[in-house]
């Protein structure tokens, strides 16, 4: 049972901006549903037509031994938080197998980053804990980053979450465009996507970005370079809505409930469609990498022809603009 003290201490309360975004998102979702009642009815009558087959695990979960080392400090960014139990035996075992306390912090973090990025496949699914993620081998960007943060915390590296509302490249949301027109409509109606979760870890005296959400194949399918630890997804394929970025020790409370409602109740077929689309994207990207001559060649080539750099813009207040409303 969570105590109010723990809720405050571990930053479990959702930030105000997240609450506002969720309310706005629910409003737009309701609008899309109301405007498409006929379509939804038809879809329900047809029964579930999108059948998603989860891919098989491509790794073994190592066995935990009591002799395994792990970080036991009750310090901010190093302790277990909601959905991120870094003291779970499976997480400690995996951290040790990936080289915790043997490799340098950076080397370990890179190994853990690659594991979460490559081995855990994106699947839109209700939030659950890191052990379930590891056992299933799939999860959303938040599941994936939770696993990475848990591994880092287990190895004594501070890790935190970064959440924001965002727009994304059309190619990136191809699975939704192809398989879930209502989801696409929701995105179009709002003008952005409600939430993306990535992480930051504290290395060599500074916080560095870590987005494990994108598998190399999906990046290839969207013509993106294969990003590494320290490379930001922001500006590459994700574009945050200004003022929505928030950094926290934990996934906030309530997020699981909203996700559950949307995924299980409101649009299970659309979600299954997106998950099918994700696997198609992975297959397509895999072919691109193969045809280009392997991941390294693909990555070098793509980085060379990346979009040119854009200016950065700060939204300074202007006294000439008067908001009367």
């Amino acid at each position: 049972m969570l105590t109010p003290w723990e809720i405050k201490r571990k930053e479990y309360m959702p930030p105000l901006i997240m609450l506002k975004l969720n309310i706005k998102g629910s409003f737009f979702l309701a609008k899309v549903i109301l405007l498409n009642l006929g379509t939804l009815k038809k879809m329900k009558k047809q029964g579930q037509k999108n059948i998603y087959m989860r891919p098989k695990l491509t790794y073994n979960i190592p066995k935990y031994k009591s002799s395994m080392k792990f970080c036991n400090l009750d310090e901010k960014y190093l302790r277990p938080t909601l959905y991120c139990d870094c003291r779970a035996p499976e997480i400690i075992a995996l951290a040790n197998e990936l080289g915790a306390f043997k490799k340098s912090d950076r080397e370990f973090a890179e190994t853990a980053f690659e594991f979460a990025k490559r081995k855990i496949i994106l699947e839109i699914i209700p939030l659950d804990g890191v052990v379930e993620v590891l056992q299933r081998g799939t999860g959303t960007c938040i599941h994936k980053i939770s696993l990475f943060i848990a591994l880092c915390r287990a190895a004594g590296i501070r890790g935190r979450y970064k959440f924001y509302a965002l727009k994304m490249l059309d190619q990136w949301m191809q699975p939704a465009i192809d398989h879930a027109p209502l989801m696409k409509q929701w995105y179009d109606a709002m003008g952005y996507f409600l939430l993306h979760g990535e992480g930051e870890i504290y290395l060599d005296g500074k916080w560095i970005p870590a987005d494990v959400g994108a598998e190399p194949q999906r990046q290839a399918a969207a013509g993106l370079p294969v990003t590494k630890l320290g490379e930001d997804s922001i500006g590459l394929w994700l574009f945050p809505i200004p003022g929505t970025i928030t950094r926290r020790e934990s996934v906030p409370l309530g997020l699981g409930f909203t996700g559950n409602l949307l995924i299980k109740r409101v649009a299970p077929d659309s979600v299954a469609g997106i998950n099918i689309g994700i696997l198609e994207q992975i297959e397509r990207g895999g072919k691109i990498i193969e045809e280009t001559g392997g991941e390294k060649t693909y990555d070098t080539m793509t980085r060379k022809k990346r979009e040119p750099e854009k200016p950065k813009i700060e939204l300074d207040e202007k006294k000439e603009i008067i908001f009367e409303g």
Binding site: G191, P242, G243, E309, K310, P311, L315, K318, I321
Partner: peptide
């Protein structure tokens, strides 16, 4: 400046600030 820059803007009041900036 890549043309995509002028396609990348926020909504609401921030859009006004974006234009002004």
């Amino acid at each position: 400046i890549p043309n995509e820059f002028y396609k990348d803007y926020p909504t609401g009041r921030d859009f006004a600030l974006w234009l002004a900036n």
